[in-house]
Measured scan of single mutants.
Amino acid sequence: MQIFVKTLTGKTITLEVEPSDTIENVKAKIQDKEGIPPDQQRLIFAGKQLEDGRTLSDYNIQKESTSHLVLR
């Protein structure tokens, strides 16, 4: 499924993911596309910070959901 990640600069990154993917996996995909190390990434969805060990389905992130990327 596709999800979108919006950066603070207003850029939207499109990612191909599975509901069973962990947040860690998603951060690795963002690193592949954008070159941002996962330890600098914070992903926010529905006002919550997403934890590495959880999956997209844990957070009820469905296709075409948009989460926000904040850099630390």
Rank of each mutant, 00 (worst) to 15 (best):
Q2V: 15
I3E: 01
F4C: 09
F4D: 05
F4R: 10
V5A: 02
V5K: 00
V5L: 05
V5W: 02
V5M: 03
V5R: 00
K6S: 07
K6V: 13
T7I: 12
T7Y: 11
T7S: 06
L8K: 10
G10I: 02
G10D: 04
K11L: 09
T12Y: 11
T12M: 13
I13R: 01
I13W: 04
I13Y: 05
L15E: 00
E16S: 11
E16V: 12
E18G: 07
P19A: 09
P19I: 08
P19M: 08
S20H: 12
D21R: 01
D21K: 01
D21M: 11
D21G: 03
D21H: 05
T22C: 04
T22V: 04
I23C: 01
E24M: 13
N25R: 14
N25I: 14
V26T: 03
V26A: 02
V26N: 00
K27Y: 03
K27M: 07
K27W: 03
K27N: 00
A28C: 10
A28R: 15
A28E: 09
K29D: 02
K29E: 02
I30L: 07
Q31I: 02
Q31A: 14
D32L: 14
K33G: 04
K33W: 06
E34K: 04
G35E: 03
G35H: 06
G35Q: 05
I36A: 03
I36F: 09
P37I: 04
P37L: 06
P38K: 15
D39F: 10
D39Q: 11
D39N: 12
Q40A: 09
Q40G: 05
Q40F: 08
Q40W: 09
Q40M: 11
Q41A: 04
R42G: 06
L43K: 00
I44C: 15
F45S: 04
F45N: 05
F45Y: 13
F45V: 04
G47S: 04
G47Y: 04
K48R: 10
K48D: 06
Q49L: 15
Q49R: 09
Q49H: 13
L50H: 01
L50G: 02
L50D: 01
L50V: 04
E51C: 11
E51A: 08
D52E: 09
G53K: 11
G53A: 10
R54V: 05
R54P: 03
R54N: 10
T55C: 07
T55A: 06
T55D: 03
L56G: 00
D58Q: 06
D58T: 04
Y59N: 02
Y59Q: 03
N60E: 07
N60D: 10
I61C: 02
I61A: 02
Q62G: 15
K63F: 11
K63T: 11
E64V: 06
E64L: 12
E64Y: 13
E64Q: 10
S65T: 12
T66E: 11
T66N: 10
H68K: 07
L69M: 07
L69N: 02
L71C: 06
R72C: 15
R72I: 15
R72Q: 15
R72L: 15
